Computed example of a mutant assay.
Amino acid sequence: MSNSSIYEIHDPRFRHLVVGSAALDQLYSDCRWAEGPVWFADLNCLIFSDIPNERMLRYSQDGEVSVFRPRSDFTNGNTRDNQGRLISCQHGARRLVRTEIDGTITVLADSYQGMRLNSPNDVVVKSDDTIWFTDPSYGIMSNYEGYKAEPEQATCNVYRLDPASGKLTVVASDFGQPNGLAFSPDESKLYIADSAHSHDPNWPAHIRSFDVRADGTLTGGDELCVTDKGLPDGFRIDSTGNIWSSAGDGVHCFSPEGELLGKILVPQTVSNVTFGGPRRNRLFITATKSLYAVYMATSGAKFC
């Protein structure tokens, strides 16, 4: 898509975050529902999920796309831990897993208080190595992105996992469908999307902001911002704290105070984003059937 048609400016600050001459590049277009992009700087490639096709794909900087994992167990969200290992949310097996350096898979969490998780969805890792993930019920609603089943958990929770001890803790339980999440650059705040509006119009399509205490608990949780088109699904934070969120008409950029600064318009419904490239200044966008990318004037936060 030409650069002249992809930007919608709502605040002058947005002009300093995007490259006016940069075009939206469509890199791949053979998915059923693309999700979970994560950048591997050491391998110069992007890994992302194609959930209904039950596979994970690899995009390399030379433009080639190949199958990274042909049987992904309906993996959705992905990230890397501080040791560079891949952390993934599997809808099918209803678990959070880690891919070790030798390729073997370690199960990090699949139950809470003796009952199976719903369907882990998105995940981030904090600088202290703790792993935070959301657990909505999307993967057990039907056989399209997982296996249809009755939920065993009473609520759709946000969890904190200490991989050293294996302790799993509920940090938030008042969401309809917790979805994307990301820390502010200084990790003092955790932003979490609620996408329950997808199945219940009485729920707002918004991102909430929590304060992160030293002991790993959360306080606050007020609404920070609302997407005016579609839902907030996955999102990431840039180095100055702006939020780049998926939405129905593209990527919405919000200030740390929740003000809509502008949009990157995308032809397909966006599911998630991540910053990548050698300078972390390329925004990779998963959107329905496709993987897109656009060069930015800002770069991703260290933990994004």
Score class of each variant (00 low, 15 high):
V125A: 07
V125Q: 02
K126M: 09
D128Q: 10
D129W: 06
T130M: 05
W132T: 02
W132F: 09
F133G: 01
P136M: 07
S137R: 10
Y138G: 04
Y138K: 01
G139M: 06
I140A: 06
M141S: 07
Y147M: 09
K148S: 07
A149W: 06
E150N: 11
E150L: 12
P151H: 11
Q153Y: 11
Q153E: 08
A154K: 11
T155L: 14
T155E: 10
C156P: 05
V158I: 10
Y159R: 07
L161S: 03
P163V: 14
P163L: 10
A164W: 10
A164G: 07
S165N: 12
G166S: 11
G166Q: 08
G166C: 13
K167V: 14
T169R: 13
T169E: 15
T169G: 05
V170A: 06
V171N: 05
V171M: 09
A172P: 04
A172I: 05
S173F: 13
D174C: 13
G176V: 09
G176S: 12
A182D: 05
F183D: 02
S184Q: 09
S184W: 13
P185T: 06
P185N: 13
D186H: 08
D186A: 13
S188A: 10
I192F: 01
A193I: 00
A193D: 01
S195P: 03
A196P: 02
H197W: 08
S198R: 11
H199N: 08
D200G: 09
P201T: 03
P201F: 05
N202V: 09
N202L: 13
W203S: 02
W203D: 00
P204D: 01
A205R: 01
S209H: 03
S209M: 06
F210K: 03
F210N: 01
F210S: 04
F210V: 03
D211E: 12
R213M: 15
R213Y: 09
A214R: 09
L218Q: 05
L218W: 08
T219F: 15
G220F: 14
G221A: 10
D222F: 10
D222P: 06
E223D: 07
E223F: 10
E223N: 06
C225N: 01
C225S: 08
C225V: 04
V226F: 13
V226Q: 07
T227L: 11
T227D: 02
P232Q: 00
G234R: 03
G234I: 08
F235G: 00
R236I: 09
I237T: 14
T240H: 15
T240R: 14
G241Y: 05
G241A: 09
G241C: 13
N242L: 12
W244D: 02
S245V: 06
S245G: 07
G248W: 05
G248C: 12
G248H: 05
G250I: 03
V251I: 15
V251Y: 03
H252I: 08
C253R: 04
C253V: 15
F254D: 01
S255H: 12
E257L: 15
E259M: 15
G262M: 15
G262N: 11
L265Q: 09
L265I: 15
V266F: 10
P267D: 07
Q268S: 12
Q268P: 07
T269Q: 15
V270F: 02
S271F: 04
N272S: 14
N272A: 12
